[in-house]
Design a protein around this nucleic acid. Structure first.
Lengths: 155, 155
DNA sequence: GTCGCTGCAAAGTCTTTGCAGAGAG
DNA sequence: CTCTCTGCAAAGACTTTGCAGCGAC
């Protein structure tokens, strides 16, 4: 039964996201296409932080008939990022990774052996960031933090 | 007089860095070349966080007779990074920037309008990072934090 | 002298762009 | 119908690599 509830909640949350996206498109005279929906849906259903290429591969796999081009992935990710629907991360390696930004704010812990990315939040750190910005006369709009190391499994 | 002292201290610090670099090269059967020295020196004398290209331009300007190739810059930066002499940063934009890593640890505050990068340290945050890593069974090797916003001048 | 280093240019990545046809509103 | 989107392929940005001659040791 818990499964049914989860499913319902998940669906509701996704529908809200989808509606927000549709409204945003309408407001800007942009069109709601099947490719854009599939990209949003795939991002939503992935727990991972996806690179444009892995997103492309996932979509090729699940929706081969669409034959979505990699250019569309890039264009849509740019659009989603500008609209603050997704956030991009650029760690040491080359290339960016994307995640849905609608979730609550969090930071990242990256395993340098297996690439595992774990999310975490720490209220104390968030507070200190505010304080530091203020003390330096800096008007903070965003921030990100990464901890690199070896995860439990790889030790 | 303070200027003279600063100059001396600066020179001593640079000579130490240079010697460490020379020793490292020797230990690994690598050669100490004028290009490698100029790259290290230029990094040392720059307050900025340099991209490979801006480093290349600086060196072309100051040492035109060397005609240092951009490939050498990349190769040397890779070498310096592997040797933990410089650290690379990859923020939102594409491409990495490099800074001498010998200085004490610090984090970065980036102005999204003018690109200004300010450094800062906060002991409290450093402590919390340790705690969080431990509590998640993560063996921290490194970490980085960026605050994005609008700097004093651009507001 | 030996063997690593360098500049050059060519080759790789990853990302963006121009264009003509497809499709949403 | 109009005007945006899309896939494709070509072009761009950034970085790496192969090679022949150069230079540190």
């Amino acid at each position: 039964m818990s499964t049914a509830t989860d499913f319902t909640e998940r669906t509701i949350a996704y529908n809200k996201l989808l509606n927000d996206f549709k409204n945003l498109l309408k407001k800007n005279n942009l069109k709601f296409t099947i490719q854009r929906e599939v990209i949003l849906e795939t991002l939503y259903n992935s727990d991972e932080h996806l690179s444009p290429e892995s997103l492309y591969n996932l979509i090729q796999e699940k929706h081969p008939q669409l034959n979505t081009g990699i250019a569309t992935i890039y264009r849509t990710l740019t659009l989603l990022e500008e609209s603050d629907i997704v956030t991009s991360l650029s760690f040491g390696a080359q290339g960016k990774k994307y995640e849905l930004g609608a979730k609550e704010h969090h930071d990242h812990m990256i395993c340098t052996k297996c690439g595992l990315i774990t999310e975490f939040v720490d209220e104390e750190i968030e507070k200190r960031q505010q304080l530091i910005s203020q003390s330096l006369g800096f008007q903070m709009t965003d921030h990100s933090m990464q901890i690199y190391g070896i995860c439990k499994n790889c030790q």
